[in-house]
Computed example of a mutant assay.
Amino acid sequence: MPTYHVEMLEGRTPEQKKKLVEAITRVSVEILGGQPDSVDVLITDIQPGNWATGGKLWSEPRN
């Protein structure tokens, strides 16, 4: 079964992360088959100063 790598800006609560991994696991099993305990989800929290979009760090003010 798959291993998912989720990278996102830090700030999500443990409850939000729990719901996310439950949903990813459920959909994986529905579509791919297999057992939930064979689905791995790795979450990496990224500080806004280490992520940029459009040439602008997320730690910088946005309009």
Rank of each mutant, 00 (worst) to 15 (best):
Q35V: 13
N63R: 07
G33N: 11
D45I: 05
Y4H: 12
E30D: 14
R12M: 11
E30A: 10
D37C: 04
P2D: 03
Y4Q: 05
T3P: 00
M1Y: 00
D40W: 09
I46F: 08
A52S: 10
T53Q: 08
Q35P: 02
Q47W: 04
V29N: 06
R12Q: 11
L9H: 09
E60Q: 15
M8S: 06
E30H: 01
M8R: 02
D40N: 15
G55T: 02
P14W: 00
T25Y: 01
I24N: 08
G49I: 08
R26N: 12
K56Q: 14
A52F: 02
K56P: 02
G55L: 08
S28Q: 02
T44L: 13
T13L: 02
P14A: 05
L32D: 14
W58S: 15
D37Q: 05
I46R: 09
L42M: 09
W51I: 03
D45Q: 07
K19E: 09
W51H: 12
R26C: 09
S59F: 07
K18T: 12
T53C: 10
K19V: 10
K19D: 12
G55H: 07
I24Q: 07
L42F: 03
E30L: 11
K18D: 10
I43Y: 04
K19I: 07
S28H: 06
P14T: 00
H5Q: 12
G49H: 11
V41H: 09
